[in-house]
Amino acid sequence: MLALILLLAAGTLAGCDEPSQDVMFEGGTYAGKPDTPAWQSETFNGSRETWEQEIKKRSALQSEYTRLKGGG
């Protein structure tokens, strides 16, 4: 009985640590708290690469150098 209590106590205390903040992955896919990523929509059809390309392109459009050259 005492051993059981001590075991339980040890277990509970072991939990009192800062949990890891690393993004959780299981088998290569995101397994954290539920949230639909931006690419899971009709626009991107679940293609992460497409979305990343889009965002990258948008970021590039912010460049003043490209703007001055008349690039965008």
């Binding site: 931006a38 626009t43 979305w51 889009e54 965002i55 990258k56 970021s59 912010q62 150098y65």
Partner: peptide, 29 residues
């Protein structure tokens, strides 16, 4: 607003008047 889903970058970045090498830049690569 969820701008990501509308293929847009963060609003602050988009509206910065001196973008790239300037105020707020998103690194997405």
């Amino acid at each position: 607003r969820n701008r990501f889903v509308r293929r847009q970058i963060a609003g602050c970045v988009q509206k910065c008047v001196r973008p790239k090498h300037c105020s707020v830049v998103t690194a997405t690569c």
